[in-house]
């Protein structure tokens, strides 16, 4: 018996630094992701400004070519078009990197959905990188038109992925808050062990029941949201869970108010 206890203690002693180290790694990893997001976001904004300028320039050149219909104006339009298409690819590629990092940083997303979304984001990044290389090599009118044609296949893919990831990030945030709220609801439970009986006990129990009912409603709406996301992904349809998300948000706000009231009255 003594030996067993000693070995358990020894084991705990051995794993505790490993566990602590793992926690530190996790924190530093999260910190580095946040820093990376800030850096990629800066790059994204810079590239977007550059793209806007190039797109404006291309539209002017295109207008000139339509008006003048000369070889010189065609050459300017081709070069400006190539530049604008290249910068658009770059912006979208950086945007994909940004949503990938946001997915990695997010806590509340269902692990299965997170893995699928990350894989989809990485695959699409490869597709966009390949398209960017093609655009870079497109030096004449035919090639520029060809990369524009190829982009039409990528366009719906990226808009669908953006919609999917954006929905995941929103519901993930709400899920995180719901998970934290559960522990708060438990802490304010007047039936919990150690709670002192008082004249207000019955009132507190009724108030707590109200909060529990709200939490159940939130859980149902969140469950509905996750199911809708899965079904929409499988059927490759656009996702719209804005109504259930709005309901979750409103009910969580109400829960916070109720909890604050209960704690203030104790």
């Amino acid at each position: 018996m003594k030996k067993t206890i000693v070995s358990i203690l020894f084991f705990l002693l051995m794993i505790s630094p490993v566990w602590a180290h793992a926690q530190v790694d996790l924190i530093s990893e999260k910190k580095s992701i946040i820093e990376e997001i800030a850096e990629v976001d800066r790059t994204y904004k810079g590239q977007l400004a550059e793209y806007r300028q190039a797109a404006d320039q291309f539209n002017i050149a295109k207008g000139q070519f339509t008006k003048l219909n000369t070889l010189a104006s065609l050459e300017v339009a081709v070069q400006d078009g190539r530049k604008a298409l290249l910068l658009r690819d770059r912006v979208l590629l950086t945007y994909l990197k940004l949503i990938e990092l946001k997915l990695l940083e997010s806590d509340g997303i269902n692990l299965e959905e997170k893995t699928i979304a990350l894989d989809m984001t990485k695959d699409l990044q490869q597709d966009f990188q390949a398209h960017l290389d093609l655009t870079n090599n497109a030096i004449d009118r035919v090639a520029v038109n060809q990369v524009a044609d190829d982009f039409e296949i990528l366009a719906p893919k990226i808009t669908n992925l953006s919609n999917y990831v954006s929905t995941l990030l929103r519901i993930g945030k709400l899920q995180t808050i719901y998970d934290h709220s559960l522990s708060l609801v438990e802490k304010t439970n007047p039936n919990a062990a150690g709670a002192e009986p008082s004249l207000k006990q019955n009132e507190m129990i009724r108030a707590h029941t109200e909060v529990v009912n709200l939490m159940e409603k939130i859980y149902t709406n969140l469950r509905y949201g996750w199911d809708e996301i899965r079904v929409a992904r499988e059927k490759e349809k656009p996702i719209d869970i804005s109504k259930s998300n709005a309901s979750v948000f409103a009910d969580l706000s109400q829960t916070m108010l109720f909890l604050a009231e209960i704690v203030s009255k104790r």
């Binding site: 977007l48 793209y51 797109a55 291309f58 295109k62 339009a77 081709v78 078009g81 604008a84 298409l85 658009r88 912006v91 979208l92 009118r141 520029v144 038109n145 524009a148 044609d149 982009f151 366009a155 808009t159």
Partner: peptide
């Protein structure tokens, strides 16, 4: 971004 950007 303009998703329909093209020359011709």
């Amino acid at each position: 971004v303009d998703m329909t950007l093209r020359l011709d």
